[in-house]
Simulated scan of single mutants.
Amino acid sequence: MTRLLYVFICVISSQIQLTAQASLNDYKYIIVPKQFDFLNAQDQYQTSSLTKFLFNKHGYTVFFDDDDLPQDLSENRCLGLKSDIKKIKGFLITKLQIDLVDCKGNVVISSAIGETKVKEYQKAYQIAIREAFVTYQFFDYKYVPSISAKSIDTNTSNLDEIARLKMEVEALKGNKGNVVPIPEVKALELNESSKTKNGDLNQAAKGLLGVEVLASTSVKEDMLYAQPITNGFQIVDTQPKKVMILLDTGTPDVFIVKGEDSIVYKKEGFWVYAVNSGENLQLSVLNLKF
């Protein structure tokens, strides 16, 4: 009976640890206060510095609460967890527990209690923090963005490119003085297999783009394939060799080409590669398969 009870406790503990780790993986950052509630001054006894050091050491991305925060965290504080150290009452003993608290004030994970009988405050607090932190150092932590967070979890360069994309889309839609709109083509009913046979792709695409747009249009008949990646697709040819990266814009079938002043969008069943230099518009039809 004792052995069965021991096995049961081990199984339950493992399940709790896996659940805690899964919850922790939902968060991208750890925010450490410069002063914990039980202390009288900022970073007193180096408690905040030690806490930040330990989280950094074990693979977490950590900021003090008065640091310049990343743009995504500034815009959405729910991407981070606040580390809160609680002092637990004890007779002639120092006891500390490290909680990770979400943006709504809910405790996501609590550490084991670190304790020591050392009387000197600085040594006692640092020993107790290190003991409590053992809970977090053995997690195989890796941030996994939730579906709702993926649109927010974008680095600065991608945000700049998306802003540029919006300008290009507006140019495609409304720059009537310089760009002739792409005509609507209602008679294209080619299936995927027929588009590439007997020059149908070339002919149909010229019907789609066959209008003067202050630059030449072209058809690229080399087969390309889209491979899903975070926030978009990697486009490869038949070798396979990477051709470009397409980034999601939040608009269906419209992508920004990473590192270029261009977009790829779907028009009448065809994928169009558009480059707008600010003076003219150049279009190409891609033989692209998702």
Score class of each variant (00 low, 15 high):
Leu224Thr: 14
Asn158Arg: 12
Asp222Cys: 03
Lys197Trp: 00
Val118Asp: 06
Val179Asp: 00
Tyr225Asp: 10
Met167Ile: 08
Ala205Gln: 11
Glu212His: 04
Gln203Arg: 10
Val213Trp: 02
Lys176Trp: 15
Thr196Pro: 02
Asn158Gln: 09
Lys173Gln: 12
Glu184Tyr: 12
Pro228Trp: 01
Lys173Ser: 11
Lys173Asn: 11
Ile182Gln: 03
Tyr125Gly: 12
Thr116Tyr: 12
Glu192Phe: 00
Lys197His: 03
Ala171Cys: 03
Leu214Met: 05
Leu209Ala: 07
Tyr143Ala: 14
Pro145Ala: 13
Leu224Trp: 15
Gly177Ala: 10
Glu170Ile: 10
Leu190Ile: 02
Glu168Phe: 01
Ser148Cys: 06
Ile127Ser: 14
Ser151Gln: 15
Lys173His: 12
Tyr141Pro: 05
Asp140Val: 05
Lys197Asp: 08
Asn198Lys: 06
Lys117Leu: 13
Ala226Arg: 05
Lys150Asn: 04
Leu190Cys: 07
Met167Ser: 04
Tyr141Thr: 02
Lys195Met: 11
Tyr225Glu: 11
Ala112Lys: 04
Val144Thr: 12
Glu221Ser: 05
Phe133Pro: 00
Val185Phe: 00
Gln227His: 12
Lys220His: 10
Glu115Leu: 10
Pro183Cys: 09
Ile162Glu: 02
Ser157Asn: 13
Leu172Asp: 02
Ala163Asn: 12
Leu159Val: 13
Ile127His: 15
Ala187Gln: 03
Leu209Gly: 04
Ile229Gly: 09
Ile147Asp: 12
Glu168Tyr: 04
Tyr141Gly: 01
Ala171Arg: 08
Thr156Lys: 04
Gln227Met: 08
Ala163Ile: 13
Ala132Glu: 09
Phe133Ser: 02
Gln203Glu: 13
Pro181Lys: 03
Lys150Trp: 10
Lys166Cys: 07
Lys206Thr: 14
Ile182Cys: 07
Glu120His: 05
Leu208Glu: 04
Ser194Ile: 11
Ser151Ile: 10
Met223Glu: 12
Thr230His: 06
Ile129Gly: 01
Leu165Cys: 10
Val118Phe: 13
Phe133Val: 09
Glu212Met: 14
Asp222Phe: 08
Lys195Gly: 05
Ala149Met: 11
Gln203Lys: 07
Pro183Ser: 06
Asn191Phe: 13
Val219Trp: 11
Gln203Thr: 15
Gly177Trp: 06
Thr156Met: 06
Lys142Cys: 08
Leu188Ile: 11
Lys119Val: 07
Pro228Asn: 00
Thr135Met: 15
Gly114Ala: 07
Tyr225Ser: 13
Asp200Gly: 03
Val179Ala: 01
Ile152Thr: 10
Ala205Ile: 00
Ser193Trp: 15
Ala132Ser: 15
Tyr136Phe: 14
Ala215Asn: 08
Ala187Met: 08
Leu208Gly: 02
Tyr121Met: 10
Lys176Phe: 13
Lys119Trp: 02
Tyr141Asp: 03
Ala205Val: 00
Leu172His: 02
Ala187Trp: 04
Ile127Tyr: 12
Ala128Cys: 09
Lys176Arg: 07
Lys195Asp: 01
Tyr141Glu: 03
Leu188Pro: 13
Val169Trp: 10
Val185Thr: 09
